[in-house]
Design a protein around this nucleic acid. Structure first.
Lengths: 216, 216
DNA sequence: CCCGAACCTGAGCAAGCGCTTAGGCGGTGT
DNA sequence: ACACCGCCTAAGCGCTTGCTCAGGTTCGGG
């Protein structure tokens, strides 16, 4: 059975990487970086996983670091768009915060190999590339802070320290990439749901959203 | 039970590392590993920071990996003892949980270079050493789970998913090592206090302990 | 005064690293 | 037919890596 290649959409996360050989190399690099770390991964290992010779890598990427940069940039953009999609919806801050956490966590769990590279290999990037990525991360921070701030303003949340709580919420979500194991007992959906609830408690949400009837 | 000869105790964290040169090398390795990561650090760099020639390292440690193992083991033991000290006290579960989180977080912030190595270089260890360390980490998990379980049993906490919440609490604390910056605006004490409050909310503690009157 | 143990260095080895180069192969336009 | 171009490989270059080893220094005890 030959694979019917799907080149676009959310399900094939590296669909935008063209030519096909470049995509294969990038996917191989994600796996290798996530498994062993950037510095412990050799260009020979990446090329080998993609079924090519070491030299083939340098036709599609100038350096090993450029590969990491491409992965990091695309990954951050995807994670950020997941966050923003939920944040820009209409409705109560509690619903938006819960939705954002649920989606963000689910992304980190589902794509935990990518997320691991994205979140933990930041300082393997060169100076310029790193500052570019850091700017993206600040936008994630701003999104979460905005929702929490609005919740406080509207009297939905009780948060004494908005920046600190924002930091903690993002930290909690990001760390999912470190411990999540696909062979573990929890599905990405379950973790997202659990974390959305925990975060609502962290911000002191007045009433839990969804489930309008059950109070207990 | 051997004579515990502490040179200086908690304030000089590597006091128990006996030949002075070995301690200098270990401290240098902690700095280097935290700054660049294990794989990106060379033995020449470590020796240089300790003011020695590269060969001197191998008089005190068999391999570079053994150095990492020593750091990781001592670090985990210290972090675990910090946790257990607060967990074994008497009193309400909320007080013990808050105390444990406060101390654990403070440790990760104060000793964030050590903590970074301890928490993020686990899979640079060899097979045997890694399983040894993983056992220590499971004990940390057990400590937190026990407190939360007792809080639920005594009706102090409202936690639908005890293992999941335990995981989240520990994850939150551990990730402090990643983002904490000594030149940042928060002191380790402040972060510990903030996180203790957040965790109490996560477990649905009935009433916040300490500070009986003051608000704002 | 010398001895042996503990400690450290200068020089360097084998292996592996990121990356380059010269060239081959297959499909397309003319 | 043939030149061209995109894609790939075999071979290997220059360098750094973890680690070794013969030899030197320091120092307490006899």
């Amino acid at each position: 059975m030959s694979a019917a290649e799907e080149t676009t959409g959310e399900d094939a996360p590296w669909g935008e990487v063209t030519p096909e050989a470049a995509r294969r190399l990038l996917v191989a690099a994600v796996d290798a970086f996530a498994e062993r770390g950037y510095h412990a991964t050799t260009t020979r290992d990446i090329a080998g996983r993609a079924g090519m010779s070491p030299a083939a890598l340098y036709i599609h990427y100038k350096t090993k670091e450029e590969l990491l940069h491409r992965i990091s940039k695309l990954g951050h953009e995807r994670a950020l768009s997941v966050l923003e999609a939920e944040a820009d919806r209409e409705g109560a801050a509690a619903d938006r915060l819960a939705g954002a956490v649920r989606s963000f966590v689910r992304w980190h769990a589902e794509r935990h190999t990518t997320a691991r590279v994205v979140q933990y290999e930041l300082d393997a990037l060169g100076e310029e590339h790193r500052t570019e990525i850091v700017a993206l991360r600040r936008r994630s921070d701003a999104v979460v802070r905005r929702i929490i701030g609005e919740g406080v303003r509207d009297g939905e949340f009780d948060v004494p320290d908005v920046p600190g709580t924002t930091l903690a919420v993002l930290s909690l979500c990001i760390d999912v990439a470190r411990w999540f194991n696909a062979r573990g007992s929890r599905t990405p959906d379950e973790v997202g749901e659990l974390y959305a609830g925990l975060v609502l408690r962290m911000v002191g949400a007045r009433r839990p959203p969804r489930e309008p009837g059950a109070a207990r």
